[in-house]
Design a binder for these strands. Structure first.
Lengths: 343, 343
DNA sequence: CTGAAAGCGCTTACAG
DNA sequence: CTGAAAGCGCTTACAG
């Protein structure tokens, strides 16, 4: 790496002190009464030498790294990579970079990544917290580290978050199924105490009750994050063969994709033999003969709000907590509709 | 943000100079003959105070930020987000963080993101270069900034890269179609001079020639990155209605997904009425009644090699250029096969 | 209108 | 075996 040009280099060429160069390049020339002549010369030389400020040095002085840490379950999950993209755009436009890390839904890994990024002096975090990471989050609060939770939160902690109304969304999704007249509706979720999953299950139960059906635990299947493929196989088989389910609600995109694979693997037709509704978008839904109705989360808005809340907190503009709950809508038709429905 | 504990804090508590603390915590106590007693005390206090080194300060001194910049076309594209994940894992395991940015296949945007991350003193870059960014890349070389190109490269520049053999892969993909006896095979790619697209077209032509068919330009459709949806509509219609194509080769996952939407939109059956082969994986392929044969890139290997090559360069262990070309294989059956084919 | 100086939190050559 | 000091590239209060 070639030696980068510094303030001193410019100062030497122009024949002034680094103070003046710093003032001018930070547009504080006026208020520090730098003569327009030297200011002009400094700007010229800076351009000629292609000066790029060293943000590291600046950070050390200002105690601000102008970077934020983004910790999600897995950056390769479309839900999170789409989120990452909107967070990137939002952050860059406000002069912040984004450093990312994946937790794999594991609280030990989360803590490790968090510590790693802390070492890098990020100014704050956007975190999709894992199960059992309350202690870690509490520590952040204790250290007054700015952060905002996304996708999930903890009722026991008064932390900032940006989430969606999972209860309402799930209720809508399941009601959509029930309106077709089914009485035996299964659910597959992750085995997790995380609030968003709990609320998805609650929404499912509420929809059943509203339809005059008493929820039955045997229709609720939970699989673990790390071995969901094999457990999904078992769950789908049980729902279809033993519980005679007429429809299944899958609680995430990953679960829906895997569940549908299993359903097709068993040679079942959707929706004739087994109907389906899912949480989260997937590029795959557009392609089934039967379009998979699903809950579409406002990913862009979540990302933008998360950055906004975080930066407000970093800049100390934040009075009290910011707890933001957005609405997610059921999509029951492919988009763009005109392209796919015509001809 | 609470004040972080520094070396000085530890030094004060123990009653020694910061030098000793630094030596001990960097495991250079022995070689600097720090007494085991003070060393032990220092480690104790560091633990008690939960000391986390300030990487920013360290970076300023060492001129190493221990971070790398990853610039792709779009982090929300599954190809790149999967790549990002393997790069993250690889980088973290070597004590590097990853800062990312998207170029949207736009050379101006690329330059902007590059400058932005340069300001952050990243130690090097992993870049999927856009069309027309040769000048920017040349500048990196001139400045001796370590970097490695992925997915594409420029024949006119002797830069490090990790790519796959696009020519061979495309030839294999198209040959697979031709073996079924088709004679009119279309291709849809992006309108781009980027080498990987050129080689995918070349591979297509080679396959045709090998099968005794003279390539005809009218079967080659190119769409622009920014407006590919509408152009795809036109391309697919032309191929089907005017050119009477029997099969189409889509040159990326995005193109394949959009193309398939259009094909279905026209009510055509795959593969009976129009056959298809694609470049890149997509979660959607597993779900069609007819599994879409496609080229599967070794994403994990590409990411790992890219990090390896970059870090070697950063550490000056790199003699000459590293030009790595991996093989990509055609997948003509769903995986895991046993799950989907049985029952 | 301008410069010398301190300091952000580290590392490390040097002196003792 | 240990400490004082310089320096990484900035910013900024202060003196003149």
């Amino acid at each position: 790496m070639k030696k980068r040009v510094s303030l001193k280099d410019i100062a030497d060429v122009v024949g002034v002190s680094t103070s003046l160069v710093s003032y001018v390049l930070n547009n504080k020339g006026k208020e520090n009464r730098v003569s327009e002549e030297t200011a002009k010369r400094i700007r010229e030389v800076a351009r000629e030498l292609n000066y790029q400020p060293n943000q590291i040095a600046r950070s050390l002085k200002s105690q601000r790294s102008q970077s934020i840490g983004l910790i999600v379950a897995d950056i390769s999950n479309p839900f999170f990579s789409n989120m990452a993209r909107t967070i990137e755009d939002e952050a860059h436009s406000r002069n912040y970079t984004v450093i990312f890390g994946s937790s794999d839904e594991n609280s030990t890994k989360l803590k490790k990544v968090l510590d790693f990024l802390t070492t890098r002096q990020v100014d704050g975090f956007i975190i999709a917290p894992t199960e059992g990471c309350e202690e870690t989050v509490r520590e952040l609060m204790k250290n007054k580290t700015p952060f905002v939770l996304i996708d999930r939160y903890f009722e026991s902690l008064s932390a900032n978050y940006v989430i969606i109304d999972n209860f309402q969304a799930s209720r809508d999704a399941v009601s959509h199924l029930l309106e077709k007249g089914y009485t035996r509706v299964g659910l597959v979720s992750y085995r997790s105490e995380l609030i968003h999953f709990r609320n998805r299950v609650r929404g499912y139960e509420e929809a059943l009750k509203n339809a005059g059906i008493t929820p039955d635990a045997k229709y609720v299947k939970e699989v673990s994050y790390d071995t969901f493929e094999t457990e999904m196989k078992k769950a789908v088989r049980e729902l279809i063969f033993e519980d005679k389910a007429e429809a299944i609600f899958f609680c995430t995109n990953t679960l829906a994709i895997e569940g549908l694979k299993q359903i097709f693997g068993l040679g079942r037709k959707v929706p004739e033999e087994i109907d389906v509704v899912a949480f989260d978008q997937s590029i795959a839904y557009d392609f089934f003969e039967y379009f998979i109705p699903h809950i579409s989360q406002p990913i862009k808005e979540i990302g933008q709000e998360a950055v906004r809340v975080l930066l407000e907190q970093i800049n100390g503009e934040n009075e009290g907590d910011a707890r933001i709950c957005l609405k997610a809508k059921l999509k029951s038709h492919p988009a763009p509709a005109d392209e796919l429905k015509t001809a």
